[in-house]
Simulated assay, not measured.
Amino acid sequence: MRTYLALTTAAATLLAAGATAYAVTPAHPGPAAKPLAGLRVLISNDDSMQAAKASNSDGLGLYELRRAMCAAGADVVVMAPWQVQSGKGTAVTNGGVVTAQRRTALPAGYEDDCSAAPSQGAVFGVCLAAGPCGKDTPSATPADTVKLALRGGLRAKVGWKEAPDLVLTGINSGPNVSASVNDSGTVGAAVAAVDQGVPALAFSSSGDESNTFFPRENYRAHAEFGARLVAGLRARSLLTPEFALKVDYPDVSTGQRARPAVWTRVGDGAVVYHAFEQRGTSDSFDIALGLCPFDGTGEGECAEGRKDADSTWLLDKGHVTVAPITWDRTYGTPVEARRTLKRIEQYVEHDAPRP
């Protein structure tokens, strides 16, 4: 990671005739360096880069995250799925052609967020096509976009000759907790990054009470918290590729404040589950999503057995939750970066920014 040193001018002393000392007024200091200045950040998600739906479920959180990171001084490039890819997990495309198409007309209100950054916050949508991406063109998966970016896409499109310093995914429309983590394309994209040796964080925000609308207020609060969280990790040299961090934010759209960040584990129950209903006696089944109760009364697959579960602390108690995610699925494999893991846990529990 690059280290930047800010040089300050010390006050000088002018000795006048007769040995009388006069203090010279120090030069006015320049503006304080932004906390993420010089940090090169790739952003992806699984909600796409469209941000066109009234529900705010198709990428608005990505633009809030881009906004906050650029405001903190980062140089940001977005490579995200062309279409919504929610639930794709770590899926990849094994053949064919992908196109990374730059978006020139950004969503209203986000056009100038990164205008001062070297890469100007360039936004690319990645589709499965040999030509231009159209309205109905199939999309690359979240993991595809990260792999493309790290394996030549960033070099070709924006001239980054080295890997970014950090990959951020999200902000997802809806929390990714408990069993949903395995399905999450937002988490899957972060896993793809650490698999390539690049530090990564995956951000997901709660929706409103209906869980069908995702307020801008939630995305903005999460993005601004996320920028400060990343700044704290960076200042402590805790941006590590050994594992990803999953950061979920509660609903604050009705005016309540999020409670402080808590270090958690992924829960062993479900919050959302897949339901299948047969169509009469045919071979076809309708797929639907079932929603478990959030009040701790769930049974069967909805039952949560861990006291430090992300779902409990996020949905029941209203805290920001942070959990480490590893790419290594071998059961019982110890985390090699245990010292770093402990330091990040202590930072989250004791020194993380207040929501």
Rank of each mutant, 00 (worst) to 15 (best):
A27E: 05
I43G: 04
A33K: 01
L39V: 09
M49D: 11
I43A: 05
T20R: 12
T13Q: 13
L39T: 00
A51S: 10
Y4P: 06
A33S: 06
A10V: 09
A19G: 10
S44N: 01
N45R: 07
S48F: 04
K34W: 00
V24L: 14
T25P: 06
T9N: 14
A32M: 11
I43C: 04
D46I: 12
A32Q: 11
T25F: 08
T8C: 13
A23M: 10
A16Q: 08
D47P: 06
A23I: 10
G18L: 14
A33Q: 06
L42G: 01
L14T: 15
T3E: 15
P31V: 03
L15C: 11
H28M: 10
L15S: 07
L39G: 00
A23Y: 07
L5Y: 14
T13S: 15
D46K: 08
T9R: 13
Q50G: 01
G38Q: 04
A16E: 13
A6F: 04
G18M: 10
T20G: 06
P35Y: 10
G18V: 13
G30D: 02
A19C: 10
L5Q: 12
A32H: 14
A10E: 15
G18H: 15
V41G: 00
Q50S: 09
A11V: 12
A51V: 01
Y22R: 14
T20D: 11
L7V: 14
S48L: 11
A10K: 14
G38A: 02
A17N: 06
T8N: 13
Y22E: 09
P35V: 03
T8W: 12
A12Q: 15
P29K: 03
A51Y: 06
S48Q: 04
A37W: 05
L14P: 06
Y4T: 09
A51I: 02
L39C: 07
A23G: 08
T3R: 07
A23C: 06
A27C: 05
A10Q: 15
A16P: 04
P26D: 01
A33D: 05
M49E: 14
R40G: 04
A16R: 13
V41T: 00
P26G: 01
L14R: 12
R40M: 06
L42C: 03
G18S: 15
T13M: 14
G38V: 02
A27F: 02
V24N: 05
T25G: 04
D47H: 15
V24I: 14
